[in-house]
Design a protein around this nucleic acid. Structure first.
Lengths: 144, 144
DNA sequence: GGTAAAACGGATTTAGTAATCTGAAACTTG
DNA sequence: CAAGTTTCAGATTACTAAATCCGTTTTACC
């Protein structure tokens, strides 16, 4: 896989947060339940991302996590690199003697299309409804 | 990364074997030294691949490993799936409720280009000299 | 036949990731 | 202010991959 289990959990959690009214705080436990993730483990990941500024968090009753930026502005790469770092993605697996083999160019191309995918896809695109739902489910002036 | 450390080591080792006269037996220790890999660990990996038919092996002095097929017939996918299995590559990281989000299609596309790279690149392509050396270093009728 | 060199097989150790647990701190509500 | 609920922080455990170690088997060579 391209990213770790931790990153995957983070992305799925962010997808949940993207589906809720912006500014709404959701508890780690609820996110975990909805996305079918280990809740304690997820909580730790979310805390790390809160420390890094990707989430705001509130303690106590009616607390939880919420996005600090609009989901459309947040790329998968932002999350993955925050959780996993970039070392593994930059690493070149075939250190051949001279460095000029057929496979080298192919790898570079592949790697850049991976990076491209991660950078050009947003958390909003992850949320269900990013594809063919254009109506946005009328979330204008109701609660917030 | 797309494949494990074990797979990477296997591929680098196979690249070495592809650079030597076909039918020549090379010791695990020598491969490890040339490719800068942990020799004991590599040995175990090669033994597994020998059991699966990707290598022939000889014990005793002047023993070692050699390819059973021409390197050009052997894809990276052959090795990677033999070492890692295919489960992780087939796995879908974003199990969203309905399954129709923007990111889904992108992921499918990306995954298929990964698979495509692994399937269309051969071990011969990994070896140094796969790209711009067309003369093949005159290895016709000398020893074998 | 004896010796050394290699693969072989399994057990063991090490390291890193995944996951859980425990207690503390902060906050809301009554 | 008291009680309950949540995040927070760190320790601990579990699991898997990575790497090493040891004894055995096979083979080449003298």
């Amino acid at each position: 896989m391209i990213f770790s289990r931790s990153s995957e959990y983070a992305l799925r959690a962010f997808a949940c947060l993207a589906e809720v009214e912006p500014g709404t705080y959701v508890m780690a436990k609820d996110i975990a339940e909805k996305a079918e993730l280990p809740s304690h483990f997820l909580a730790k990941i979310l805390q790390q991302l809160a420390r890094k500024g990707f989430l705001k968090s509130n303690k106590g009753p009616s607390g939880g996590f919420t996005l600090t930026q609009p989901a459309a502005k947040l790329s998968l790469m932002d999350i993955v690199s925050a959780v996993d770092g970039t070392a593994e993605l930059d690493r070149f697996p075939f250190k051949n003697g001279n460095g000029r083999s057929q496979a080298h160019n192919g790898w570079k191309t592949l790697r850049s299309s991976i990076v491209d995918y991660l950078e050009s896809t947003s958390v909003a695109d992850l949320a269900s409804g990013g594809a063919d739902r254009k109506v946005r489910t009328k979330k204008n002036g109701s609660k917030a």
